[in-house]
Design a binder for these strands. Structure first.
Lengths: 195, 195, 195, 195
DNA sequence: TCATAATCGAGACGGTACGTCCGGTCTTTCA
DNA sequence: TGAAAGACCGGACGTACCGTCTCGATTATGA
């Protein structure tokens, strides 16, 4: 039952935190991920560079928090069929990736994460974790209904879904069709269903 | 009827071209994509920077040519079943992405391509084109066998396959299981088969 | 008849004062004047930065007090001749400048003092004052003996003596010869003696 | 008879050199030595920082060249007496130190030189060398006239003269009296004359 | 006894400069 | 004309200090 150590010194100003996050999100949209520099973020937030580096290790972590912190309080989909549940899940994934900030940030972000082993480990635990949690529940229900096997590989499916959306959005770009989520959901659900 | 323009002045030295490509491939493996700079490539190749810029527009194009120019002269798989054909296709895709150079280069490369509209257009036409050509043939044969519908969306499947492999290799990484290609092939082929 | 204002609040801890002075002197010797920072001094003294700034206006004043606070309780030399008196005076001046801390601090200290008009005024009143007081007495006695004129310019001679020692120690450096004080004393005393 | 190696690559642009020197001299006068930064110099000269660092190791070397490169083509004084010669020599020394740039730069410059062993060695060879050459000739003539001994210590006298002027200008400042050079010359020459 | 007030260690704050590295271009000489 | 060499301007990097500020805690005085 170790309580957090008593805070010493001047506490960090939450307004700085928020100003940095807003400035980052705005810059990523305006100039893109590559051209977004810590210095420019700090200047725009009216903040010293140290104040940024004190909270984030670098551009990747900062942009990740600025762009991909969805509270994700939406209920886990429960439409009664695996296809329907996957479609809802994919819809939200597509929506997140389609955001101006999301589209601008994702490719560079993944590249920076992949290049740094320390950050790489966080992709599963932070970036994909919310989706995985939901997917596990969806799979459980589908297994109970007898739609899929109990040992259906969640990670493989998750990589496939995320990878498909990423390739489609980031690399083909330009407003994915509204049917994308449905098509993908249909294909994948059929691919893992029993029979 | 296009006659080649009359060459004037000193012709380009083909050894420079090869030296640059080798130096690039080596550097990408050794220091990663982000830390690979045109200047370092030129120095390592014993070449002036202009000689690099004269042939490639920038790092992305150079690395792409250095890392992903598989002659791809392997015959198009024809195992008799869609699952088998896809498995062979995916095997070669995994092999390409699993290369040290491939793993090191791919995320950064996609990011740079995605950030530049001019380059972005080439992803489909250059990066995915060979795979697409093969996939089209595979689909044709499967459609003739009655396995899949004639209007199965090739691009969607291709994005899904490539995206799944990319996410698995580049972001989760650490030596994909040998079963990966087979698992994916089974899932996707079932997903698009009739019935 | 200014009575000191009644002290309110927590009194300053004299141990902090001393710890800061010692830390400063040690740091100046170890890393030099330029690399001595207020932050490093405070950390080494186990003290907050404000505790330093509350007592000294900046690095120059702090280092000056830490390095050049000779109590100077030695008796004013009275050897019977101007040359002898000057030699003794110069000896102590050389000794002060030759200290590890003195050598390390002096050039940077003079630069910082010279750059700030407020500090500049203190060079004469604080830095050179003790020597000047002694020189005045020495000159008085020499004038009474008839060795020099009564209006011999004290400041000019003092600047010359201090400047000569400073240039020799700080800029040419490397352990001044033991004869330095004597040679200088002889030259200058002859230079101002009558006839 | 080693000839200089044949120059390769683009030669350095002499206009950059001159622009940097002018910008440096102007900045030193306007904001002082301490507040003169390489970045500000480069910006003012319309030049990249690398272009500055390519030619000078740092601020000290740059400011030294910008401020103290007197062509010194004035003839060596020959007034017929040691006192007169010294007065002329000192006059030029005072003039050099009294320059706005000189006054602003000298204390900080000496501090930076003194702090760096590599630069320290250049003080005698570059900073004081011209004056020393002239002083040697002056002393030779004076010795031939029988005014001074042949082994009069040139370096000691030179340090004394330079130190006296430096202390007077840099630390007391504010326009030294026109008599300064004459007074000093008289004092020192009497101090080293025979008898 | 309690309010007032100054000091203490700690550390966050907005700024500024550091010296290095790249990018992409330009200007030499030599082939 | 191509090529190697390398200088050019601009700008980002991540670190260090500056001098100020804001905490909670401590230690004195005066009501």
């Amino acid at each position: 039952m170790s309580s957090s150590p008593p805070p010493r010194g001047r506490p960090r100003d939450p307004r700085s935190h928020e100003a940095i996050i807003s400035a980052t999100a705005a810059l990523v949209v305006e100039v893109g991920y590559a051209a977004t520099s810590i210095g420019a973020v700090a200047a725009r937030a009216g903040v010293g560079k140290d104040t940024v580096y004190r909270r984030w290790s670098g551009k990747a972590e900062l942009v990740f928090e600025a762009v991909f912190t969805t509270t994700d309080d939406a209920p886990i989909p429960d439409t009664g069929t695996l296809t329907g549940d996957l479609a809802v899940l994919l819809e939200s994934l597509v929506d997140e990736f389609r955001t101006p900030a999301g589209t601008a940030a994702l490719p560079g972000l993944l590249a920076d994460f992949a290049a740094d082993p320390a950050l790489k480990a966080r992709i599963r635990t932070h970036f994909l974790a919310p989706s995985k949690d939901r997917l596990v529940v969806i799979f459980d229900r589908a297994a109970q209904r007898g739609e899929i096997a109990a040992d259906t590989p969640v990670n493989l499916v998750l990589d496939t879904l995320a990878g498909a959306v990423f390739f489609h959005i980031a690399l083909v770009g330009e407003s994915p069709t509204p049917q994308l989520a449905g098509q993908l959901a249909a294909m994948i659900s059929r691919g893992i269903q029993i029979r």
